[in-house]
């Protein structure tokens, strides 16, 4: 447990004990000694005591249920509202600029790209940046002279961003936005979870709440960041893992001792015929190596021939059991 957490827990315990009737001079002396130990202890105690005292205000509501406050958690979809507001602001600015012909033409260019299951698509944007879309992915872009934006609506994409001073490149993905500081990186989105793998340069990942960043991390070449709900994990210096995560660009899937359940899920992103692992023993089987994403048959043959797993193939499924 960290120092701050420890101090917080002790402070909270003291405050509860103080309210509880059995508080005596010995307890008071104990509190005094603990506070004298460090100013950090004082900070924790004063802070909790203050807000706990503030919370007394609800006693003004009297007996009965407290009415739910309005400021409960924001809807998941709120971000999209924000995005459309932002987009309309950009369009509005574009319109204003056209009134000043002496300015360089910041006309806005918007486009959308998508791939089907198993697809792989290369896109070159008008600013010279490249986007490579992986299987079942959707990206929208909006470019002006002053701001470049992309929205990863689903799936995974690799970005190679051409440097333009004065025109930042921002990728939005649900509750997160990634600001490019000149780089090559890939983004993978599953619902609100996001995985960022940086090949070169740096990016900044912001978690947004009501359109405002509440948490940020700078990710460098060789780093992977995983954002899940409101947690952001950064793995540093994992160059090999970045390479693995980018193998799809060559139409390959690369695994380093990944469980079969994960490998199957990965293949299933690229193929309509799904691999189903039917028992936990088989699901925990560790797989390493590189396989063509579009050819699960070769992969399951290997499972059968080399590892003796049972394989039953139908038109829609490949069932694997131990």
């Amino acid at each position: 447990m960290s120092r701050a957490q420890q101090a917080n827990d002790r402070a909270a315990a003291f405050i509860i004990a103080q309210e509880d009737g059995n508080w005596n001079s010995a307890s008071q002396a104990q509190l005094g000694a603990w506070l004298a130990e460090s100013d950090g202890n004082k900070a924790a105690y004063w802070r909790l005591k203050h807000s706990w005292r503030e919370a007394d205000r609800i006693s003004a509501l009297g007996h009965g249920r407290a009415e739910p406050g309005q400021a409960s958690r924001p809807a998941r979809r709120r971000w999209w509202v924000w995005a459309s507001v932002a987009a309309s602001i950009i369009i509005a600015i574009g319109g204003v600029y056209e009134q000043w012909p002496q300015m360089e033409s910041p006309s806005q260019q918007m486009a959308g790209y998508q791939t089907a299951v198993g697809g792989l698509k290369d896109v070159t944007l008008s600013d010279g940046s490249h986007i490579q879309l992986n299987t079942a992915s959707r990206v929208r872009t909006s470019l002006t002279a002053h701001r470049r934006e992309a929205w990863l609506e689903s799936g995974e994409a690799f970005f190679e961003v051409a440097h333009r001073s004065g025109a930042p490149f921002v990728v939005h993905a649900g509750d997160h936005q990634v600001t490019v500081l000149g780089t090559k990186f890939s983004l993978r989105r599953e619902g609100n979870n996001l995985k960022v793998a940086v090949l070169e340069g740096r990016v900044r990942v912001d978690e947004l709440k009501d359109g405002r960043p509440v948490r940020s991390a700078v990710i460098e070449g060789g780093d992977i960041a995983i954002a899940e709900d409101s947690a952001l994990f950064v793995t540093s210096r994992s160059g090999q893992a970045v390479e693995n995560a980018l193998a799809w660009r060559q139409g390959m899937l690369e695994f380093n001792q990944a469980p079969l359940s994960e490998v199957a899920a990965e293949f299933n992103r690229y193929n309509k015929r799904q691999i189903v692992v039917t028992d936990p023993d088989a699901a925990g089987f560790r797989i390493g190596g590189m396989f063509p994403a579009s050819n699960p048959d070769a992969f399951v043959r290997l499972l059968h021939d080399a590892y003796g797993l049972q394989v039953v193939t139908t038109d829609s499924e490949i069932k694997i059991s131990s």
């Binding site: 503030e54 919370a55 205000r57 609800i58 003004a60 407290a66 009415e67 739910p68 406050g69 309005q70 400021a71 409960s72 958690r73």
Partner: peptide
């Protein structure tokens, strides 16, 4: 102000 503070406590409780 006092009313904001009360609202904030309520929102905190809801959380």
């Amino acid at each position: 102000d006092a009313r904001d503070a009360l609202r904030q406590v309520q929102a905190g409780l809801e959380n």
